[in-house]
Amino acid sequence: MSNTILDVKNLRTTFYTHMGEVQAVRGISFEVNQGDVLGIVGESGSGKSVTAMSIMGLVDEPGRVSGGSILFMGQELTKLSDAEMNEYRGKEISMIFQDPMTSLNPVYTIGNQLIEVIRRHTDLDKDQAHARAIELLQMVGIPEPEIRIKNYPHQFSGGMRQRAMIAMAISCSPKILIADEPTTALDVTIQAQILDLMVRLKNQLHSSIILITHDLGVVSEVCNKVNVMYGGMLMEKASVFELFDSPQHPYTLGLLKSIPRDVTGERKRLVPIEGTPPDLLKPPSGCPFSPRCPYAMGICVREAAPLYTLSDTHSASCWLHHKGAPVVEGFVQVEEESVHE
């Protein structure tokens, strides 16, 4: 099929705090192909941001990647030193963050920060970098870039700052753009513009996007693939169509039931997922969702389910897919197990 750019295998990230080990990411695997817009969905604390930071090599003390591999274009990233990793960050893989109000350094001009990144990763001289910066600001739709380049972040609105962040992130035409809740802090009207801009630039630059969000609406609009995370583990991964059409994990099902969908015109009751996310200091021994799962079985509390492959693009980690499990409407059962753990 398409060529794989990023291949994450059995990634584990652990924080060694004085209260004990916090396993924020507990063995997840996925891949990103060129042109993909991969959504990573989950509640806060599900490990989606830590996954992103692990790829960037920015997991801070006392945490570190404690297992698994991250292959970027064939290069193992987890083995690189911080200095070597700096050659990838901002150039091959770049990232934009949730809050544009605080993500830009308030004491330097937009241009200064943009040019700094450009010159860090290219051989352009000062004037060329300046010209490139103006060009980038133009690309992300900032009016009068020649003037705006001299502005400080506080002179920009939230939406403009996020555009500037995007300009910075795409300045070296990265292969992958990781966006951690890029629109959560913005007005709804701006959100669509920013998402639209990101997808447009992705196509223009032939890169891919990993979009981290808790908003399934956003996922349905821009993503082609989705990973659903819960308690540091991958619950389900699927193409967007499959996920919304036939969710194969009770957690995904719960998520879908809990979002308002008035587009359909149906008047359905919103169903909240009972309970609270697990304490990752003392994670449940079995499936992390089992304490809240309406379909929890005996084995669920004892052992986490393997990832059952349901189609080329669809797999889910739930014992309901085991042939011995009771049949539940909507859930497929498969003969063979593809065990990832």
Partner: peptide, 19 residues
């Protein structure tokens, strides 16, 4: 891996609600 007899029985609500 071996499965136990009642592995695939649904749990009643009292057993699964997290304390």
């Amino acid at each position: 891996m071996g499965y136990q007899q009642n592995d695939f029985d649904f749990l009643d609500s009292s057993r699964k609600t997290d304390k």
